[in-house]
Write a protein that binds this DNA or RNA. Structure first.
Lengths: 157, 157
DNA sequence: GATAATTGTTTACTTGGTTAACAGTCTGGC
DNA sequence: GCCAGACTGTTAACCAAGTAAACAATTATC
């Protein structure tokens, strides 16, 4: 078998989906996430929110006066990593840091009116992006997928 | 409602799984992937392969003489990003770059005997890590999940 | 033969995280 | 009341994993 014949086991061919990696959940999660994430960024555009910023704003809107520690825990990231995100949202006028009576270490995060409006708009865009991107799947499939992903996430608790 | 009463809508409470983010596929994919990835790294340990290196070795073993461009395409990454990965595998004696007769630009990647052995060991570890991590899910659930993730990945083609 | 495309590499850069350390603050046990 | 330990948000440094651009060499196409 020459080198050219070996390459005729063309890794780009249709049954490329039979290698070991195709049976690994982690690998497939990563590849699927890359697709969703790239389209998210494309949809929201340059001036829009990065996924992690959108997530943070989402929770700040839904949990008024959430603290940074709580938010970091909910998002599954380190507190230090949240600083730049909150700075960004604060600088854009979407979030304010408020002192908390009774505990001078803590700041409560509150979305501004502009922040809520921006969030609603972004949320609609994000939902539309997912709906369109996944339109080749049935709503039932999407629900099943979410359920299974949540099942994985039970490990977090 | 005081600030303390607001915070009694405890974001850490059991029904935290009802916010907007919980219905987004992208967000859940990311969170699930972080879990799988962290456990992968824990399982293979410091001297083991990072997920992306494991993935590359996997395909090199299964597609002997694959070129770097083909490999990059299959993994969904840029050619330049693959150089460091292949360098690492080559340096550890797991992979060799071979000239291809007839096309002097191309190098065919071939796993060495050591590389194949290391891969088989790692593959077994990876499979065991997933089996254990996902043991709270039925095999059918895992199969369904893989199917749905593959459905998402159809977008890639 | 000229031009466009491809290959693998190098370099610079970006993004999204983690870690460690810190000052300030709070908590709980003695 | 005191104090050690824990917590808060921040800063700076670092890391991993990727992308983009440029390039020399090579191949493909007209």
């Amino acid at each position: 078998m020459t080198i050219r014949q070996k390459l005729s086991m063309d890794p780009q061919a249709a049954d490329v989906r039979t290698n070991d990696l195709e049976d690994l959940v982690g690998y497939n999660l990563k590849r699927a996430y890359v697709i969703l994430s790239a389209d998210f960024k494309r949809t929201l555009g340059e001036d829009g929110f990065a996924p992690r910023v959108f997530s943070a704003l989402s929770l700040i809107v839904q949990y008024p006066d959430i603290t940074q520690s709580e938010l970091a825990r909910m998002l599954g990231i380190e507190r230090s990593g949240l600083v730049a995100i909150v700075d960004q949202l604060e600088q854009r006028g979407f979030v304010q840091r408020n002192a908390v009576p009774g505990d001078r270490r803590v700041q409560a995060l509150m979305a501004t009116g502009d922040g809520c409006a921006a969030y609603e708009q972004a949320r609609a865009s994000v939902e539309a992006h997912e709906e369109k991107l996944l339109s080749h799947m049935t709503p039932r499939d999407v629900e099943t997928l979410l359920g299974l992903l949540r099942k994985i996430r039970e490990i977090e608790e």
